[in-house]
């Protein structure tokens, strides 16, 4: 079970700035453990965001994204009280969805 994300969404005029911190190891598959064995790749593959249920962002991620990634984006037309939801799926099929209200 993945740890929760931290989502902050702030209305700025007719836009909302959304900042997301995700908790994920993001293993590249290039590192070796102390026994010399390759640590298998384990990373977030797909990120989606939606505003009040309708999708506003889809991203395909790979191993170049850092551990515990931070993502920031702006949604045009979002106002205070709107619901922003962010989901990710990693290459093991693990999922996580969290929601925040635009403040």
């Amino acid at each position: 079970m993945a740890d929760p994300m931290r989502i902050r969404a702030q209305a700025q005029g007719d836009k909302a700035v959304v900042r997301v911190l995700m908790s994920h190891e993001m293993e590249t598959g290039q590192r070796k453990d102390s026994a010399g064995k390759t640590i298998p790749a384990w990373f977030i593959q797909e990120v989606t965001a939606s505003l009040n249920g309708s999708p506003v962002l889809t991203a395909q991620w790979g191993t170049a994204v850092s551990k515990n990634p931070f993502m920031q984006f702006t949604i045009r037309g979002a106002k205070a009280g709107d619901k922003v939801s962010v989901s990710w799926v990693d290459n093991r099929g693990d999922k996580r969805t969290d929601e925040a209200t635009v403040a």
Binding site: V47, A64, M71, Q72
Partner: peptide
């Protein structure tokens, strides 16, 4: 030591 940058969600951030 791994990747130097914390954030690389896309071209914009880069």
């Amino acid at each position: 030591m791994r990747r130097g940058l914390l954030v690389r969600p896309g071209a914009w951030a880069m």
